[in-house]
Design a protein around this nucleic acid. Structure first.
Lengths: 127, 127, 127, 127
DNA sequence: GTGGTCTAGACCACG
DNA sequence: GTGGTCTAGACCACA
């Protein structure tokens, strides 16, 4: 597994370690990372994205705490065998829900017509 | 103007002062707060939402720095006379853009079909 | 609240940050730390026990993740309002269970008579 | 001697090699493994418990260093001829002491009555 | 090789 | 004042 599966935005207000955890959560739920799959090592990720290994290590540790990853001693971290429940579309949509709610609230405050907002999101989704 | 125009989410990772500033920016751009309109006092807002007055004061100060509000001696803060440019639909859509981009990226990581995402956002926008 | 509520054993194989988390869990379950109580600050604990502030911070963060503590912005960490379920004697005994099981297994491997083991534990409990 | 004398808990925070060494120490002190007795081979233990042979080998090496085992060329590892001192009850109780102390400390933090703790340990010892 | 822990110290965010 | 994040680097534990 390549360190390039992860995307890091260094300038974001969201801390790097949490970007990693949440991204892993989504990639696993979405099936792009499958149970048992070996993740890139802490050092690989840190080197590839030019961040501190401890930051990656912290993310991996939290993801393990959350049941997303499992430590395989001497080998590295692998994707945990998750309950199938977290893979169905409803569960995945629920992970997106807060963002959609926020977008809707903001659109309302901006008095933007629903049609415009939806069209723009559609464009972005088509990439 | 009533302190209830503002919605505060105390548990959010987004700091309270920024919730206020960004919400003011959107309400002004969207026309729900008009130039010259008097804002609720720091004490009113703080009391109503049970938050620290200093937090509200800081938000108002930053909003003033951003040219969103103006201090009127003896009266309080009023909505500044803004250039018309910030009211047009393109500008307003641009304020929403980052959230839409983030939602699109997450939807992609979750392997969610565009159609489902758009339908859910449409529901939320219809409230 | 004094930094002396926490006991740290620097030489233990159990990492310091986990010693803190688990100790907090027990002190809260046992009622020695009550809901809403303010914990000693990261810097206080670190200074008192001569350990690195980040180690304490890490423990506090994990305890927050576990729902043991809550961050009160600008004030510090307070004991979370826990469900009463975790305070009853059964739940508390369950937190001790793994240690008792391990002790029993070891006593068995050592072929020690139950009576001797129980008498020694009784002595230790009477302190 | 069968590989089933050893109990391994792969998920435990205690490293596997140390589980083995300490368990050997107790089984020998308790007399369940007697001087001269042949231990199961590294391969047998590793195969039976599905762990890495190197881990078993390391454990055997450390146990040899500690004077618990002796390497007999062409045969394998046998239980060393130990001084009688390590077999007396006081010495065996001393091996259990740290666990009992820890249990007592935790019980105290949990504000559990001594009587309940002792009764539970008694139950577990009766297995 | 893998991840884990801890330190020392800088800097930021928040109230 | 509070906690949070990140870095740089040392050292350990494990397979």
């Amino acid at each position: 597994m390549d360190a390039s599966i992860l995307t890091i935005q260094p300038g974001s207000p969201e801390p790097i370690y949490r970007q990693i955890v949440e991204q892993l959560r989504r990639l696993i739920a979405g099936g792009q990372l499958r149970a048992g799959e070996l993740l890139p090592s802490v050092r690989e990720v840190a080197g590839f994205h030019a961040i501190n290994p401890m930051t990656v290590s912290r993310a991996y540790g939290l993801a393990e705490n959350d049941g997303l990853l499992e430590r395989q001693r001497g080998k590295g971290m692998v994707v945990a065998t998750s309950d199938n429940a977290s893979h169905n579309q409803g569960a995945r949509l629920r992970l997106l829900e807060p963002h959609l709610q926020q977008a809707a609230r903001h659109a309302h405050e901006l008095e933007l017509p629903a049609e415009k907002v939806l069209r723009r999101l559609q464009q972005l989704l088509e990439d």
